[in-house]
Design a protein around this nucleic acid. Structure first.
Lengths: 349, 349
DNA sequence: CAGAATTTGTGTTGCGCACCTCAAAAATCA
DNA sequence: TGATTTTTGAGGTGCGCAACACAAATTCTG
């Protein structure tokens, strides 16, 4: 048995460092908090002592002494599909957790799909907030509102849907073109060289994430799977009934339809149409977001794979990024990277 | 715009609760920390005040006042493949993080594949540790060692590899049979009904996780894909060279070999053999764990999918579970559930 | 070398809580 | 009713650190 670097049984305090460096507490404080007025030589002495003792500030004590607290706003959609409901619940849980860390989250519900409404919600946000997480829209007014918040010193993170050219601090969400490519590869591989027609159903092509997904999807489909022919993208407006009708029409018109990629919501409509047509098993259907419904469709075999982003991870990540930024701490990029999950029937959580 | 429940600007303190309940600080303290000697009526009054003010103990202040610190041992394998190297690095990072929370992690390197060595390492562990995370072996002596630790009041979590019938507190790792089923579905779907032979390569069938994976794999293969014929499991001992030879022999002997599932290590050997045979593109190869090598094979197209467990998540989860247990806090199960990641070329992180 | 500027030391306060002691008040019992 | 037990209050201490004021020591300037 080999022991790794064994740590001291109890942590070193600022006083230990002061003693070891032969300086006073105040000087150590000046050094560790990077204040002015300490000679380079003394700084070096203190830093040597810090390194030697392995001193690390006790974050609990530091936060307590600083007495700082944080207030964040999460701007979420008011009209809600299953995914957004999940997300809201996860944000609520994150808020409970953060309340123990002197952080407060207010959840504001807004019609985030109307750029003007969203923008004015952001513009009229109470100045009490040090940070904002928002399901953004890639629209000039929204971008301007985000930039203005940033200019006021408010940390803004975009959640799930990005506003790439804005001055937001960070984007918490998946790489949507990559998600589309993933869907394409799954359909291409599952169809394994067979000649067929493939349909793409989006909620709306004015939503940046849907557009990016279908872009990635078509990119791979056309370059890697010449045997597959993609139909023009259909917009189901994330509405189940409308999506059902569109899907039924597609199935009726195209006897060789073997693949459906849905890059938005409205999955219940697709499931209904597929099951009614009796072709559920021969059509490879891939969609986004694990919900109680998509889970059921996947288990039943109507749905072949789910591409998912974990709302719990996203909520926590947004909170961590805001908190870290406001307390001047670094973030660890690979913990905050939101993965593109693929769920088959067998690896459902 | 609708506002959710807006929280008070600044948290309520114990004193606020005392004032609101019309009792003294000491009594509030007795109630919130569940000490003896308070009348039921008073308890109710205090709890009502707590609820009304939304009081939540400031974890920073509480930890500071309690002055408690924790010491955990992580028992990791000394001989190391890429996955274990990654895991060790992630544990190291977790240790850095935990050091700010009055938690200390010592990493002990042990030959975890020898039950006797592992068991005696656990038996001889310093009593200074309140918690242990261990890559377990499902073996009577190891189980006994874990049970003894648990009996001594040490919290034990198994990491990556479980010892199911032991008295460990928690298992941090994936559901291995489900991972095997996932691999089976991927190979079955990618081969899409074609008649073919499929090989399974394990490190060793005495490793519980490898056995469970191949069990799940065969379960689905035989029930769902009658067109696929599985060869007897081969043991590559997680050694690249040996695995290369075995794979080359398989390829030479079976002209209709179209699928390989590797549920252990030795992937470099498989890649070499596949590429040397010129059949890399026609054979569907699925393996475990994202490493620098498997990533390269996947991008190149030799490998078709990676089934992964996130070592960073596992390291942090183990630490969180130990910390929560030792401070009597609850854990949130779905944050601690380790997912079975599927990586294709397109959704690599 | 005096005087000014810079650097360092001493000391204090308070963050919110846990934990302790001792006394006072209230409830219970005989 | 008085004696006993139970419950409550008041108050203090310290955890490790940040933040500040002010004095002392050191260095630099003319």
């Amino acid at each position: 048995m080999t022991a790794g670097a064994t740590q001291p049984a109890v942590r070193a305090t600022l006083e230990d460092v002061a003693r070891a460096a032969g300086v006073s507490l105040a000087t150590v404080d000046r050094v560790v908090n990077r204040r002015e007025g300490v000679r380079a030589k003394t700084v070096a002495r203190v830093e040597a002592a810090v390194a030697k003792l392995g001193y690390r500030a006790d974050v609990a004590a530091a936060r307590l002494a600083r007495g700082q607290s944080f207030r964040f706003a999460f701007v979420l959609p008011s009209g809600s599909n299953s995914f957004m409901t999940n997300l809201t619940e996860q944000v609520q849980r994150t808020a409970d957790w953060l309340a123990g860390q002197r952080g407060f989250i207010d959840i504001l519900h807004v019609d985030v799909f109307d750029p003007d409404v969203l923008a004015s919600a952001l513009e009229n946000l109470s100045p009490a907030y040090q940070g904002v997480a928002v399901i953004a829209l890639d629209h000039p007014r929204v971008r301007a509102a985000i930039d203005e918040l940033a200019a006021r010193g408010v940390a803004v993170v975009t959640l799930v849907s990005d506003a790439p050219s804005s001055r937001r601090l960070h984007y918490v969400g998946i790489d949507n073109p990559a998600a589309g490519r993933t869907a394409s590869t799954l359909i291409g591989r599952f169809l394994a060289g067979r000649e067929a027609t493939v349909a793409v159903i989006a909620g709306s092509l004015s939503l940046r994430d849907h557009t990016e997904r279908q872009f990635g999807f078509h990119q791979i489909l056309s370059s890697e799977y010449p045997n597959l022919r993609a139909l023009p993208v259909i917009e189901g407006r994330d509405d189940s009934e409308r999506t059902r009708e569109l899907t039924a029409a597609l199935l009726a018109r195209h006897a060789d339809l073997r693949g459906i990629y849905c890059c938005g919501a409205g999955n219940r409509g697709i499931a209904d149409a597929l099951e009614a047509s009796g072709r559920a098993r021969e059509v490879v259907w891939i969609t986004h977001e694990l919900t109680q419904y998509t889970r059921r469709f996947l288990v039943r075999g109507t749905l072949d794979a789910i591409i998912n982003q974990d709302p719990g991870h996203e909520a926590r990540s947004a909170a961590r990024v805001l908190l870290a930024h406001c307390s001047g701490e670094p973030i660890s990029p690979d913990q905050e990277r939101i993965r593109i999950d693929i769920f088959l029937r067998d690896n459902l959580p």
